[in-house]
């Protein structure tokens, strides 16, 4: 029964809408202000200063392009893989920041009104990670799944 639900195309579409809109929104808040996002990334102190800007420039675009492709059902396995991987990396970064006791904004959705890093953020991310894995695992291997 679970298998039927999880592979159901409407249920998969529902999961994709939730998962993809998270990234489209998150990328959208950062895309035009790379400088602010670069500051957020450097606050984590995990990347050498030379690489911070490069990632600040490309991550929002990856989020938006993959998010849109996923939403409309193009390359579902590939895109859900990319976004789940990205989210996994973000979660590990938040976790490391938390155990190091950094008092920083997570920078997840731009810098204004941002959330602080902490357990709540990690819990939230874990839920989204589960959704990402469900899409990756149970979506059918079609190029176009929007129907």
């Amino acid at each position: 029964m679970w298998n039927n639900l999880l592979t159901n195309s409407n249920f998969q579409l529902f999961l994709r809408i939730i998962f993809a809109s998270l990234f489209i929104f998150s990328g959208g808040t950062k895309i035009s202000v790379p400088e602010e996002f670069a500051v957020s990334i450097s606050n984590y102190r995990l990347l050498p200063i030379e690489l911070v800007n490069f990632f600040a420039i490309i991550i929002p675009w990856i989020e938006i392009i993959t998010g849109i492709l996923l939403l409309f059902g193009f390359f579902v396995k590939e895109n859900s893989f990319i976004l789940t991987f990205l989210l996994g990396v973000f979660t590990i970064m938040v976790f490391i920041a938390m155990i190091r006791g950094l008092n920083i904004e997570c920078g997840c959705f731009g810098t204004k009104g941002g959330q602080k890093v902490g357990l709540l953020k990690i819990f939230e991310n874990l839920i989204y990670l589960v959704i990402g894995i469900l899409i990756y695992k149970f979506s059918k291997y079609h190029k176009i799944l929007l129907k």
Binding site: P34, I49, E50, L51, N53, F54, I57, I58, I62, I65
Partner: peptide, 23 residues
């Protein structure tokens, strides 16, 4: 494709930043 789009956009974005960060 995303990276190319991002770098192109960054070049023409008035808020664009240098690709390599500096101290």
């Amino acid at each position: 494709f995303s990276a190319i789009a991002a770098l192109l956009f960054n070049t023409f974005n008035e808020n664009g930043i240098p690709v390599l960060g500096e101290e």
